[in-house]
Design a protein around this nucleic acid. Structure first.
Lengths: 260, 260
DNA sequence: TAATAAATGTCGTTT
DNA sequence: AAACGACGTTTATTA
């Protein structure tokens, strides 16, 4: 473990500097807790006043500056960033930059409470279920999730303005565009569907139905749907996962137990 | 600093458990480095195999599980989460959940390398420049950024399917919808603009121009624009920031809300 | 490399 | 509380 994890508590700026510089050079993960401020220039620009934060520099170069609140980092750099650390006027400067993107984050610490240099090995697999892709799969396996008598014909069918999620035929043989969303659909999704339907009407000269599938609709989207003569079919990712679980292999079944 | 930052290096599971439980109860920020695996159930569900990671539990309840790579956490919970920590079969279990949302993340550690309990004070202000809002401001101050002779009339004008960024009149008196984007515009933005233009044509019975303003257009969006007879005007957030820098100090704030 | 759309998106703002 | 849209969105996939 000692080889894996080197910790400095209450280091001097000089000690912190050396540990961080070497940690970054050695492609370790570097954790810094201290009082800092920051400036960012690139796609936009930003200024962050002084405060106590947690900074995480990962071995792939991604860098996160976390305040004691919120999910999102207040400042960051994506993977592949480069670093320059130095001491200036008794303070620790860490410049995180991406040359090609002309993007730079300058971090300045005047106090460092904790530095940890970590060699982490993480080969664990990660799997996510109940994605929009899973919903599409479920519909292909069990088309009645959309509507009794619905028959899918094509997936990812290209039309003029994009790709139709599922193109099929309803029980009366009408061409039917299905657009799937894993969360509550808003106006945006309706516009997308409307465009697809319009493209298909034009290119085929046939009558075309448009059905939005998702767990719920917003009020505004509801109105737009009505105005554009489009339809909504409620369907949750959860329900789809169940269908997939039944038909494929069991994955989500313990979810029901969890939910009570 | 000692009051601010309590660190356990290579603690036993029991020691880690106590420190973490008390840290969470005391609304501290808690850093954990160790070997863990995880399961998530909620909006979706996921399974993460064993590996060495950094876990950050913030004082507002937000929780992040970070692998040694990537900007994004592999698992997380938003602010406001609740916690239950316990030891089971010699392992440390941390359950992070939100009852109302029926969302739960279960983290299990079999080894803990480092625990830090942090009391962080962060009152620093954060400011972001060159946002889309800044671009709109710049256009209001300097309408020729869109086109010579353009005169803004209304901002955030509601139409049937949403809100028009800037509604104005071109040099020939034609109603003109301007949609602003801070980065390269894709199909989505074109659809949005098309809808607005269509709504206004219908509701006013007048000729309506639609101009998309942004740093660049994608190929596909370009095509869609042409097909729908809409226009594109290149304008970068940076250029807008310059304009604001020049003109802002003159305090032309509540400008352009009245019709001219 | 560019483009396109999903995301457990998150987050602020406004109704 | 719900809706709506921006975000330095990031990330994966595909042409």
């Amino acid at each position: 473990m000692e080889g894996r994890c080197r910790v400095l508590q209450g280091p001097t700026i000089e000690e912190a500097f050396r540990a961080i510089r070497d940690g970054i050079a050695g492609r370790r993960n570097v954790l810094i807790v201290g009082n800092c401020w920051a400036e960012y220039f690139g796609r936009a620009s930003s200024k962050l006043g002084a405060g106590e934060r947690i900074v995480l520099i990962k071995s792939d170069g991604s860098t996160l500056v976390h305040r004691p609140r919120d999910y999102a980092p207040v400042n960051w750099q994506p993977p592949g960033s480069l670093f320059r650390t130095r001491i200036k006027e008794g303070r620790l400067h860490i410049r995180v930059f991406r040359r090609k993107q002309h993007e730079s984050l300058e971090l300045i610490f005047d106090r460092v409470y904790l530095v940890a240099i970590l060699h982490l090995i993480d080969l664990g697999e990660f799997h996510l279920y109940a994605s929009e892709e899973d919903m599409r799969q479920a519909i292909l396996i069990e088309p009645s999730l959309v509507e009794e008598g619905f028959r899918p014909v094509t997936i990812e069918r290209p039309v003029e303005s994009g790709f139709v999620d599922i193109l099929g035929v309803d029980r009366e043989g009408r061409l039917t565009v299905v657009e799937v969303k894993r969360k509550a659909v808003g106006r945006e999704a309706v516009l997308q569907l409307e465009r697809y339907v319009e493209d298909l009407r034009r290119s085929t000269g046939r009558e075309v139905r448009g059905i939005l599938v998702g767990p719920e609709v917003s009020r505004g989207a509801q109105g737009l749907l009505a105005a554009l003569n489009l339809e909504f079919k409620p369907l949750s990712p959860k329900r789809c996962a169940e269908v997939l679980g039944d038909k494929r292999d069991r994955r989500i079944t313990d979810f029901a137990l969890e939910e009570r």
